[in-house]
Write a protein that binds this DNA or RNA. Structure first.
Lengths: 229, 229
DNA sequence: CGGGGCTATTCTGTATGCAATCTATTACTG
DNA sequence: CAGTAATAGATTGCATACAGAATAGCCCCG
């Protein structure tokens, strides 16, 4: 019996390191593995049911992604992404700003429809339904970026997306902020619809930088008390 | 006896995979390993004087960097970067454009001086001295990006820099193009000096996109004849 | 009671071995 | 002779084994 992902006649069973990579990535993003937690390869390998060899290949990739760091004395530890969260928004503004510009030039009618639908649904979702709001927020930005048709920009976006959006969702606590975000999404959609890349660019940057301000004002709920070493 | 890089009292001997990573990276960028060349792990490991285990860790990282690709049937091959060279310039315009904007806000007087010197020297270097011109070109963009003080933007830049600049140097064949590049560097420097991020951003984007046009017009000197499989 | 050095254990980094898969070559069949 | 099946060699992906470094603990000494 093959792995379940291989059921549709795909050529090859999934490598073990890929599964480990996915699981670790999710665990780190969801804070199930605390920042600065030292990762003991033997234990981790046993937990994942693989040997250290493919585990280390997964960890090497996670390190390039910035999710994991190598300690000075060797070995890996979970990155503390709060350290450079502020900085990450600069990169995001660069990528998504220019991305919105390209999107305005290359977007299809179908994508515009999806953006409009996203905004419409967002306006109706309850403030309390955090999961739904987070999903819609992620989806909006994904549609814009994928409309660029640029594999490199899409790749760069997905790399930082996970580092940021889970935190960003936490910030959407007030109805005021929520409505403002949706309004900005609405304006960006309009700019893209009018194929005005310059406006789309500027609106997107403003949207992201104001999101950063909100993020840094938050009460910083989860404190560093859980940070093992 | 320790490795020579460890001579200055640094804590640890360099891991074997890091050296392999560097060597392979350079070899791929310099086209010593042809695009689409299938990498046989056993041979490569023997050439590098290490075993397959650290070699595979180096290859995993190179894959995340985009320098190496996994074939459908398993194994690694050198990426054909000409495929997405055009695309890479979009990402570069996004990063360096916004980077120039940040640089204008955060640059120090010392950095401005270095930029001015770079431009001045570039104006005097002979057209035939390709190495020198390439070095100066890289240096200019490095100064601008490092002036952003943004680790993430610097990291993203260094990632694509190597994919592009070696090719870009090939394009600086005409005196006209050369002078134009320097003139654009000069204007960007002035914008940064005046702390005008908006102008710096637009100039940098224009500079990069015109560089892309030149690149794609080139006679495509090295043909795909060397592309093994 | 506090500090420094020694020892034991843990952990990492790398090499090797093995099974499964892929590829190329050859033999066979229509 | 073209096309296809079978087989042998090559190659990957993973597990295990081992040496050296790092860390923790302990004892001895001040």
């Amino acid at each position: 019996m093959q792995s379940i992902t291989d059921a549709l006649g795909n050529g090859r069973p999934e490598p073990a390191w890929r599964n480990a990579y996915r699981q670790l990535r999710m665990a780190i993003i969801n804070r199930e593995l605390a920042p600065r937690l030292r990762l003991i390869e033997t234990d981790l390998a046993q937990t994942l049911g693989i040997s250290r060899t493919p585990l280390r290949e997964a960890l090497a990739r996670l390190e390039v992604d910035g999710l994991v760091t190598t300690a000075k004395s060797g070995g890996y530890a979970v990155s503390d992404m709060r350290e450079d969260l502020f900085d990450a928004y600069d990169l995001r503004a660069a990528i998504e700003g220019y991305g919105a510009r390209l999107a305005a030039e290359r977007v299809t009618d179908g994508e515009i429809k999806r953006l409009r639908e996203n905004v419409t649904i967002s306006q109706r979702v309850a403030l309390s339904d955090r999961n739904q709001r987070a999903r819609l927020n992620i989806e909006f930005h994904e549609i814009v970026v994928s409309a660029t048709r640029s594999p490199k920009i899409i790749h760069a976006f997905t790399n930082i997306r996970d580092l940021i959006l889970t935190d960003e969702d936490m910030t959407l606590h007030s109805e005021e902020a929520h409505q403002r975000f949706i309004r900005e999404h609405d304006l960006i959609t309009s700019a893209i619809e009018m194929r005005d890349g310059d406006i789309a660019d500027r609106l997107m940057r403003k949207h992201l930088l104001s999101a950063r301000e909100l993020l840094l004002q938050r009460p910083d709920a989860d404190n560093a008390s859980s940070g093992e070493y």
